[in-house]
């Protein structure tokens, strides 16, 4: 791949040898290591990789929340290096929408106010902001829930409010960090469907960091991140958790055996759920297919 810098306005995101190091000297950890990447306008990228591979740091670099230790991050043609905090805030406010692992809604505000407040920050106020927030929530299927507080909404509903909030200022880029991690299978599928619709209907650039394999189908491109570097293909060191379908390192010590096979889990909770009814999970046909397809 050619990663020469050039002024190409069709690229929403460009990374050139971006490296992020935490700590210093003996305690330093390289979270993102010399990553170069282009994402076109309207493209959907899924970044996969195990926990600790640097996915979240990469999303934070692209989201103007972190500055690279070295290299360049360019958003909509603008290099983030050297920009003031105020300008970085403006980029986050107007050019990027965030969907986090937890919905991260403001607990004192209702669903509509959570969306409205982001519009207010960008200078859209009063009836205009309210109308826009209401329309977005209706699109998310939450027309009847606009005046509910986060505590009165289910996890899936909260995540849909978060997606509406991410879309509020009509940003070109949506960054999602593990958007389905805290959701059950059905709600996770709902969120995936929503993201797919947004990408198709609104032509947004969507970058999703996840280790949820279900999201792969959504992507124009799937990137594999391991030890802070982007790899061309899957590593052989990973396998799928049969309960939550997340990627798990084969060296994970959270394992159990059933009918002569070894199963690896991302958490002890998944292992416990598996052990409660191993047949229900172990005999799911697609699990083996996924593992085979992965490599």
């Amino acid at each position: 791949m050619d990663f020469e810098q050039h002024d190409d306005i069709d690229r929403a995101v460009e990374l050139y040898h971006a490296t992020k190091v935490y700590g210093s000297k003996h305690t330093s950890v390289v979270a993102v290591n010399d990553v170069s990447l282009h994402v076109e306008l309207g493209e959907i990228i899924v970044i996969m990789g195990p926990s600790g591979s640097g996915k979240t740091t990469l999303i934070q670099l692209i989201g103007a929340l972190l500055t690279p230790t070295s290299g360049d991050v360019i958003i909509n043609g603008r290099n983030l290096n050297g920009l003031s905090k105020k300008e970085l805030s403006r980029i986050r406010r107007e050019e990027i929408g965030f969907v986090f692992q937890s919905p991260n809604l403001l607990s004192a505000l209702t669903a509509i106010q959570n969306v409205e407040v982001v519009l207010n920050l960008a200078g859209v106020k009063g009836a205009n902001a309210r109308y826009r927030a209401e329309q977005l929530l209706k699109q998310m299927g939450l027309g009847e829930r606009v005046n509910h507080r986060p505590s009165q909404l289910s996890g899936g509903e909260q995540q849909r409010v978060a997606i509406a909030r991410a879309l509020a200022n009509n940003p070109q880029i949506i960054l999602a960090d593990e958007p389905t991690a805290n959701l059950d299978s059905k709600t996770g599928h709902e969120v995936i469907r929503l993201l797919r619709n947004i990408a198709k209907e609104q032509g947004k650039t969507i970058i999703i960091a996840t280790h949820d394999l279900r999201i792969r189908d959504l992507a124009d491109r799937v990137l594999w991140l391991e030890d802070g570097k982007i790899s061309v293909r899957w590593s052989d060191g990973f396998i799928i958790d049969p309960v939550c379908l997340m990627l798990v390192n084969r060296s994970s010590e959270i394992v159990t055996t059933y009918e002569g096979k070894t199963f690896h889990f991302c958490t002890r909770k998944c292992k416990e759920r598996f052990e409660e009814n191993p047949a229900a999970y172990a005999n799911r046909g697609f699990w083996e297919d996924l593992n085979e397809n992965m490599h």
């Binding site: 989201g63 929340l65 905090k85 105020k86 805030s89 403006r90 980029i91 986050r92 406010r93 107007e94 965030f98 986090f100 991260n104 809604l105 403001l106 607990s107 407040v117 982001v118 920050l121 960008a122 909030r165 200022n169």
Partner: peptide, 16 residues
């Protein structure tokens, strides 16, 4: 109590 919520506002573009 709401430190994280202020972090959310900062993340979505609120200035100091």
């Amino acid at each position: 109590d709401k430190a994280k919520e202020y972090g959310i506002l900062k993340a979505v573009g609120a200035t100091n």
